[in-house]
Nucleic acid binder design. Structure first.
Lengths: 83, 83
DNA sequence: CAAATATATCGACTTTTCCCGATATGCCAA
DNA sequence: TTGGCATATCGGGAAAAGTCGATATATTTG
């Protein structure tokens, strides 16, 4: 999922009919591509969010998720320096 | 353990009475510090080795483990570029 | 070769993680 | 305000990971 969200336009073309990509991709799109149940995907995304890897924005009945690039940069540095 | 192995001289002072640090630290030293059983530590180290994060060298009845810094460098880059 | 020591492997049990269906919550439209 | 849709949360069963004791293997020493 994290890799998918790196290129939303390529991995979630249906999102266009629905909204732009400014806020990210909504749960339903990710769920369809993942082939997991809605509850599983929702929980997974919320875990990634708590971990800081993605950000969410609620717009109406939809929740959009997008990557937080800073977190990956930080993790990369952490592995190099601390681990 | 990976962090410990970054500074063997500091984290495994008893290793001096036993051998140098050229080959790394032996399982018993790591086990004592970890507070886990011998079998657990041995298996854990072999997993880390298969994953490429540490290297092992058998010398007599001892097996010494030391970090493979290249693996951490590679992981760091992978997270930054691919993930 | 036998005993002692260091490490590795095996099988079982416990804990954690994964994933689901059911249900709750929030929002929108008729 | 009711019904429908998107998402979130909850509880439980299945799968995976963690940990242990017992035992096997390898090496050194007497």
């Amino acid at each position: 999922m994290l890799e998918w969200l790196k290129e939303p336009e390529i991995n979630f073309p249906d999102q266009l009919q629905h909204a732009g990509f400014e806020h990210g991709v909504c749960v339903g799109q990710i769920q369809a591509k993942a082939g997991l149940t809605q509850s599983t995907v929702s929980e997974y995304l919320s875990i990634l969010q708590r971990a800081g890897f993605i950000e969410s924005k609620r717009v109406g009945q939809w929740t959009y998720y997008k990557r937080n690039e800073g977190a990956f940069e930080a993790l990369s540095k952490l592995i190099k320096s601390n681990l």
